[in-house]
């Protein structure tokens, strides 16, 4: 067992974990953060995407011990004061989810994408989401949602929408 200290969605945890434990299982089984899900075992589907120190990672490809000292943000930690993150809101408004299983990872990846490129064109969005699989939507409305979120998150678009960089570090 190895002890790790990790901040998840703004809460600090100290836990003994098996060295082989993947971050996603630490989140789900130890912390009860079941909003983050497992969709495959080969890091292809992206359903488990979270932010590690502000960067998107597939939490099935990160060991919990690698998150020692880090700040992790999950789908459960991006809404602020009862306000959805603009990407969450855009997914809802554009019907960008059906069964919703890929959605947490897709939203976390989209936030990361918009952090890197606040004004992506359609092709850049499609390529930026290439590592996240969805079987329900055909991606059509996911692309629309990310375009919509980019508009909402432009500086000055709306006073009460937080910028993605500020959110990526976590906090509740």
């Amino acid at each position: 067992m190895t002890q790790i200290r990790v901040t998840v969605d703004g809460v600090e945890y100290a836990d003994d974990v098996e060295p082989r434990m993947l971050l996603v299982y630490y989140l789900r089984e130890r912390l009860g953060k079941t909003g983050t899900v497992v969709g495959c075992d080969t890091s292809n589907c992206g359903a488990c995407t979270v932010h590690l120190n502000g960067q998107s990672v597939k939490s099935c490809s990160v060991l919990a011990v690698q998150a020692d000292g880090a700040e992790v943000t999950t789908i459960e930690g991006i809404a602020r004061d009862g306000q959805l993150h603009p990407v969450q809101q855009a997914f809802h408004d554009n019907h960008a989810l059906q069964c919703g299983y890929c959605t947490p990872g897709m939203i976390m990846q989209a936030i990361d994408l918009l952090g890197d490129n606040p004004d992506p064109d359609e092709q850049e969005i499609r390529e930026g989401l290439e590592g996240n699989l969805c079987r329900c939507t055909g991606y059509h409305n996911i692309v629309r949602a990310v375009q919509d979120a980019a508009r909402r998150m432009k500086p000055g678009a709306s006073a009460d929408t937080p910028a993605p960089a500020a959110v990526a570090g976590g906090g509740q």
């Binding site: 497992v38 959805l84 997914f91 019907h95 989810l97 919703g100």
Partner: peptide
């Protein structure tokens, strides 16, 4: 109409079978 279902699905307040302990 936008969907009622979305509220829980976009925030991770989900009830997948594997979440049950």
């Amino acid at each position: 109409r936008t969907r009622k279902e979305d509220a829980r699905l976009i925030t991770g307040r989900t009830r997948w079978t594997d979440n049950i302990t």
